[in-house]
């Protein structure tokens, strides 16, 4: 019932993404894109050529309740260790 990818457990998806550019979603409205070099069972990651995107949602001062502005901050890093417990999602580049 499996598709062409030959994935048998979720970590296979990560294994097949080594040396590829991946998208990582983290807790705290942070997102990363970078090249995956290493991972372990905790989903600790080593990424290179990383761009981090941080969404800063702020309540508009003096505005009505719930009116917010979203500021996007970006920064680049050469090499990065990501602690696994912050990881929500990892998506490899689509192989289509």
């Amino acid at each position: 019932m499996d598709t062409s990818s030959g994935i048998q457990e979720p970590f296979d998806l990560i294994r097949l993404s080594l040396s590829e550019k991946v998208f990582v979603k983290l807790r705290g409205d942070r997102e990363l894109t970078g090249v995956l070099h290493a991972y372990d069972g905790h989903m600790n990651l080593i990424l290179s050529d990383v761009e981090e995107t941080i969404m800063l949602v702020e309540q508009v001062e003096g505005g009505p309740e719930g009116q917010t502005t979203v500021n996007v901050a970006k920064r680049k890093m050469n090499m990065l260790f990501v602690r696994g417990d912050g990881v929500i999602l990892v998506s490899p580049p689509s192989r289509t």
Binding site: L13, F23, I88, L89, S91, P92, S94, R95, T96
Partner: peptide
């Protein structure tokens, strides 16, 4: 949209 996605189970 993602072609593939790995979701860490604790979430």
């Amino acid at each position: 949209r993602y072609g593939d996605a790995f979701i860490r189970g604790n979430n």
